[in-house]
């Protein structure tokens, strides 16, 4: 890593970094927003990793009843969640195509797809809420069991991140409408797309985590040394 190589510089040697060098390299800059997004994704990752660790630790308590594994448990058949997953996947695909068509300047398709992206994301949220309702009516209320609590909590936090993404996307479009700066729109949409893909990966992870069965948690926890 150049970062670590640079740490061994002896800065009091003024000739070490000739100015010319720094100027020529300046063009390879990435967008500040991209750097910020990278760090933000790291922060969000830390957040979910910590939730996961508490989840695994909590899953080893006696009163923990996993949500799948037995026929009467809700996620033994997780088809509803698979539908939601597909929706979110398509939302991400739409976002990716949005960038693609914007680059090609096919504005109509761009508008169509960005609307699709937003709608599908909202649909995903409604799908998740639907799952909550089904769970609730099947007797898996929030406080019944820590596994339920975690399901509502983690899907909720994930959903909030999606909603945040939709808001940010609206803001980006709104800015474009105000200032009509296409370069900026493209940059920002690219970042939004990255965010969508990231949230899809997080969702896949949460999906796998939350619908595991007791034996899975046991072996993961054993492996992690809880």
């Amino acid at each position: 890593m150049t970062f670590f190589r640079e740490l061994t510089d002896k800065p009091w040697l003024t000739e070490y970094v000739p100015l010319e060098l720094t100027e020529t390299k300046a063009e390879s800059n990435e967008l500040p927003a991209k750097t910020a997004l990278k760090f933000f994704l790291v922060v969000v990752t830390v957040l979910f990793v910590l939730f996961t660790i508490t989840f695994l630790s909590r899953s080893q308590a006696n009163d923990f009843q996993a949500l799948s594994g037995e026929p009467w448990l809700p996620f033994t058949d997780a088809s509803q969640l698979w539908i939601n997953t597909t929706i979110l996947l398509f939302a991400g695909v739409c976002m990716q195509l949005t960038v693609f068509f914007l680059k090609k300047e096919q504005i109509n398709r761009f508008i169509l797809l960005i609307s699709c992206g937003c709608l599908l994301s909202c649909l995903f949220i409604f799908g998740q809420i639907n799952v909550w309702q089904q769970l609730y009516y099947a007797g898996f209320a929030l406080t019944e069991n820590p596994a339920n609590s975690y399901f509502y909590l983690l899907t909720g936090i994930h959903g909030l991140h999606i909603i945040g993404g939709v808001l940010a996307l609206s803001y980006v479009v709104f800015q474009f409408w105000l200032k009509n700066n296409k370069k900026r729109l493209l940059d920002n949409l690219t970042l939004c797309t990255v965010y969508w893909h990231y949230l899809f990966v997080v969702w896949l992870f949460l999906f796998a985590l939350l619908t595991g069965n007791t034996a899975t948690y046991k072996s993961i926890a054993l492996f992690c040394g809880f």
Binding site: F3, E6, L7, D9, K10, P11, V17, L19, T22, E23, A26, N29, E30, P32, A33, T35, A36, F39, F40, V43
Partner: peptide, 23 residues
């Protein structure tokens, strides 16, 4: 978090010419 992302990005991206990390 809002402030922190700002500080980190600023330090990494907005340094003046010649301001290497070790300077």
């Amino acid at each position: 978090t809002m402030g922190g992302l700002n500080y980190v990005t600023t330090i990494l991206q907005a340094r003046a010419k010649g301001m290497t990390l070790m300077r």
